[in-house]
Design a binder for these strands. Structure first.
Lengths: 311, 311
DNA sequence: AATTTCGATTGGAAATTCCTATCAAATGCG
DNA sequence: CGCATTTGATAGGAATTTCCAATCGAAATT
């Protein structure tokens, strides 16, 4: 099994082939001529072929040498490009980021966010994958995502989270429901009512459960939504009422069949926090910063939907 | 100015990224885990970016790491291919050979020879350039050709020559010349006649000059041919008679306008030697051997033209 | 003939890469 | 829960690689 050539050997050989002179090649490479001579000889030994035809005043690459020269140049160029590329990616301006996101969030926020990101950093690519938030966290910890967009809070000592924005939750009731006529509701108005919720894999579930316990509403356990659309449909069928995020309401209820009504809470105090999460020491800090900045900008531009961006 | 990564570092990094475990990567590379760990850390230092996100049971490439991984693999593959390629070329089975040839020889021998060479070694490419034999030799010594096809003998301590074949020279006279009716001539028949020759850049010139001196013929100095065609034309115009090589005669006289006749010498003792020449220690020995073998085979197949191949 | 230039060789120094041993932290198992 | 195992990093010393200056022999130049 032959040893592999080193980049150093390739560099020295290319310099000899290009200058046609060992002494000048050595100067160019910043080493002494004997060192360079020995490295080129070592390369010839490894490859089992004479690469340079030597004679006084008659230095030239051989047949083998010329082919090796072409390839060596390519390898060296690619290595230089690798160094340049790493520097670019490390600034967070290029590369591919694997973003995990919750289906209760991603589809309603990311379309605008992705195009804004592309405008700001055209060489930064996003690979987006959805999973319920509990699974998202596990996958992040396992290295399957570089970062995730999800509702806060998240638990994990090894995780780093930043808040992007607060998003109001709206009460969604059937159109014939008594609360449908209200311009706004208060938490206390939920007392004694039956609330539908997402499954326990969602932070939203916990938030709704806590609210029910707090105001004396009933959290419906027999039926759980597997998506926000499912919740909306069950509400329209008068199986209960539910809380839906503002972005979803703006996207799917405002333009829906009109069988439900979304009523905001007075003061907008019922809201969820949405953030970006990554692993500490995950090596993606720059990209994380870039996404944070862009996503906060996007949230800022969605003030009309009730989003309150973190500054 | 940053140092350049080494292939060793790239290899170790790829092994970590592929195995997802430093210990197993080290085993794969045949070094101890701390050595491997330090090299990967060194690579991260050089590139200025974290390539591997480390956590217990949570090893994964970062955004940067994934791009670097793709490129590192390519660089390593190309380096392996370089080693394989050098081995192939060194066997003389592939690569490009720069062949210099005399215009008084190449056009009449090489068409058949090149196709035979291509059949025997499809990956071996020939780059053919013509120059008068004196210039050919200088260019060979200067490394502008890898080898040359030319008439022997050649002088040069740094050169290595093999004879491919002996090629008879035929007397070419105008059709109305007294010797035109002969089936064969002897050297002594040239006594007192005026012979045309190529210029002094050609070995053929020296051979004809020596023959004239030997048999008492007159070497015409006022006119010299710049090509074999020019010699034939001057002979047709009765400016003298000349000696032309058998391959040329077979190619251009037998099928020409019939204004000259080619008469062989009895016993075929007037002949030129044709050989292949390269620089000693030029590094092209294998390719040189390959061409020698193939060209001798081709010469063997041209026995009807009077060629006597070297065995 | 004397001097300069070139690539190779030699001996020793410096730098790089390696090893073993060990540590600290996390995980797995009984 | 306590102990054993596993993992990647750290430290000290050894081995290997790469370097340097000096020198050599041969060729080219003056």
């Amino acid at each position: 099994m032959r040893p592999s050539p080193s980049l150093r050997q390739l560099r020295y050989f290319v310099a000899v082939a290009e200058t046609g002179n060992f002494r000048r090649a050595a100067e160019r490479c910043g080493v002494s001529q004997p060192s360079l001579s020995l490295q080129v000889a070592g390369l010839e030994e490894i490859l089992g072929a004479r690469l340079i035809s030597r004679g006084r005043g008659k230095i030239a690459p051989t047949v083998v040498g010329r082919e090796v020269l072409t390839r060596a140049r390519r390898i060296l160029d690619e290595t230089n490009a690798l160094v340049d590329l790493a520097a670019d990616i490390a600034t967070g301006l290029t590369g591919m980021v694997r973003l995990g996101t919750s289906p209760a969030l991603g589809p309603y926020f990311l379309p605008g966010a992705v195009s804004a990101l592309h405008r700001a950093h055209p060489d930064l690519k996003l690979y987006v994958r959805e999973a319920p938030p509990r699974r998202l966290l596990q996958e992040l910890e396992r290295g399957e995502h570089d970062m995730i967009l999800t509702q806060l809070p998240v638990a994990g000592a090894d995780l780093q989270a930043v808040r992007l924005f607060r998003e109001p939750l709206l009460l969604v009731v059937p159109v014939r429901h008594p609360l449908a006529k209200r311009e706004a509701v208060r938490e206390a108005d939920l007392a004694g009512l039956s609330l539908l919720s997402m499954g326990p894999d969602y932070v939203l579930h916990e938030q709704v459960a806590a609210l029910c316990a707090n105001v004396g509403a009933h959290l419906e356990q027999a039926y759980e939504g597997t998506s926000l659309d499912a919740l909306r449909t069950m509400t329209a069928m008068e199986m209960g009422i539910c809380l839906l995020p503002a972005l979803y309401v703006a996207s799917e209820v405002a333009r829906g069949p009109g069988d439900v009504r979304a009523v905001p809470f007075a003061g907008g105090r019922v809201a969820r926090s949405v953030g970006l999460v990554t692993r500490r020491r995950g090596g993606n800090e720059r990209a994380f910063q870039r996404l944070t900045e862009v996503f906060r900008d996007v949230a800022r531009s969605r003030g009309a939907d009730g989003l309150r961006a973190e500054s």
